[in-house]
Design a binder for these strands. Structure first.
Lengths: 215, 215, 215, 215
DNA sequence: TATGAATGAGGGTTCATTCAT
DNA sequence: GATGAATGAACCCTCATTCAT
């Protein structure tokens, strides 16, 4: 992408670079698809290349090895991990949160690499560090939202916000796996309700919701 | 070998079946230890056998393959997944829950296979089914506790108990990973508080706790 | 071989160890044959295994890799590099030397690895050190023979014995390669004569030879 | 690239053929340098091209393959193998020979491909034939010098000149490898002395040297 | 029954060579 | 001509599994 930007304004628009970038992307996409489908260890570099429609050797032109493709893939997709900024000040926090969750969860689903990573984490400290960073960014984002709400006196004052942020994260990250597609809509609502009950005292929650009805 | 030493001087000792069972157990334990330490794919049958103090070939007398050892291992340890029956009627639900969580989490830690399984799930539907069953048993146990509490009118009456049970499960299962050992004590308290807030209306919670103080 | 010695006196004579040793030897022999035939780089581990009549994997039970087989091979055969102690005091030095050369050259031929090593030397300092050691042992043996002769006043007194020893070594080591088999007998004589002329003043040489005729 | 810089500002400059020749030479030089440094098998076509500052594909415009570059290289450098015509009639044969050796050995060092070739010989009969030819030319040159000396009655009359020529060749070709730079000067002298002793009867040698002193 | 050497398919990776641009 | 990305055969090595002892 930064590559494309550099090209802006240049006339002939080198087809070579574009094709290379396309091939790299095809490999990443294929790696992504196969890692999800069969797991990381079960996917061979040969398969990834074949799936991307290139020769085995080409794989190694773009990535030093399978692991590096995984890292590149993660860097490409990392933003998806970040949940949207959650607004705790909305009139109808439950509904707002529910829709936030839906958006975020869909993204995570799309990423869908969670099933691929755990086994690797134990043997790859760089990967571990990388994901830890991502996780911290998510946590920090949730925590900051909670702090703002706390400063306005909207939430329980005896909460350890760190724990709350972490519980929300876990619920969102691991929570919807086994739910059938048709039931998910309802579940978002229920989760949102649970989270709100963790966060807001009932009185505040009622009041916020009332405002909503008034509008 | 330490096994052989024990045999010195003792003649008939273990009947055949027992010796075999001991060997089988040693293999399971070794598999368990190594899977945790290095992951499933990264552990070889040879290593498991060596760690158990038997020959490579012996491994295959007791298990048809590596995967089957994993399944046996899980069957052996599955009970550990089950959380203790949670008592929602105690006088001090937060404290009671916190200690339940601590007990359960320590068991799960001991099992510690979560990092090993996810990647396998994608390629092994039998394993998937197996774990789904285990998961369902946990869920059912939590759910049944909630229902009892619900029947006594102790908890929010607009809760989808299924969702609540599931959220509790997720928090317990995935929640404490990155917490440092020293901070865990506090975290159990905080988690218990959160869960209680999801479950009990504040008034009930207050009342239950008051009883406690009275005693 | 030292293995065999250890076994002397033991009854059942473990067939396992013997078979393993035999396999190891078969691999070394195959490696040796193929290295000579096609060169080191051109020979694959698979080929060596096939030539020895075992599976690829078996190769790696006995040797960590191709290079290690080469080292083992050299260690096994290193003694062959050592030329026989050359007797400079014999009555007929030329004839004696000629026959020594013949024996030694045949051994070297049998070893025949010279064609295999040069390219490797540049990239493998351990191998280089190993061969340097072997070379030094040869040189030392020749030199010691020359010194003894020198002390008896048999040879030119203005010789740098080190250089002489080295020249002899080179001639013996590299000298007979391209000579056709049929001509070798004569060539040994000629070489022996040359070397003697390098070493002995004509008068001494004549005198020594005369003794011989007298006998 | 340094080539390109030379082109700046100069329009037609090198005719096509010359440019091509320059590129070809650059490739040969690079191949030569890399073969010496890392060995033939260890050097890739890509590296040679990169070292020569051209693209991989360009390599194959000039040479059908890596082997062909080696052959071309040898043809280019073959003359270096030829030792200088050795004058056996000089007044001070030892000194003359010593300086001849020095010149020749330096050339051979410069060529330095000896470490590269042996392994290849076994699998490439054309190469073998080629080097055999070169070797024969050297041998013939030395032999012809010896014959001339023989005709003048300067050397031992019972010598097999073929063997002598060959011994000289071997000593010169393989002899100085392991000698440290600082000791080489002396060694040339010693070698020259040895060779002279192989060739000349002491009386002749003395007489020739005396002439020298007289001058 | 226990052993552990043997097997060989298959994985990751390299590199000589080709060919579209 | 020149380029260098693409190719894919072939290499080295591992390890789940078998089987003679």
């Amino acid at each position: 992408m930064s590559d494309d930007e550099k090209l802006v304004g240049e006339y002939p628009l080198l087809p070579k670079q574009e094709r290379a970038q396309a091939k790299r992307n095809a490999l990443i996409d294929s790696g992504y698809a196969l890692f999800q489908e069969k797991g990381y260890e079960q996917t061979t570099a040969k398969e990834i290349a074949a799936h991307a429609g290139v020769a085995t050797g080409t794989f190694y032109r773009y990535f030093s090895d399978k692991r590096q493709l995984l890292m590149s893939l993660l860097e490409d997709k990392i933003e998806t991990f970040l949940p949207p900024e959650i607004s705790w000040f909305s009139n109808n926090p439950v509904a707002t949160l529910a829709s936030s969750l839906e958006i975020h969860y869909n993204r995570i689903q799309e990423l869908g690499l969670r099933h691929v990573l755990p086994e690797l984490l134990s043997k790859d400290s760089e990967l571990e560090a990388f994901l830890e960073t991502a996780r911290n960014r998510i946590h920090a984002r949730i925590l900051s939202g909670l702090k703002q709400a706390g400063e306005k006196g909207l939430i329980w004052d005896d909460l350890d916000l760190d724990t709350v942020a972490w519980a929300i994260m876990v619920i969102v990250e691991y929570g919807l796996d086994k739910t059938s597609q048709s039931e998910k809509k309802d579940r978002y609502q229920d989760i949102a309700k649970l989270i709100c009950r963790m966060v807001f005292p009932p009185s505040i929650l009622e009041q916020l919701s009332k405002n909503d009805v008034d509008n």
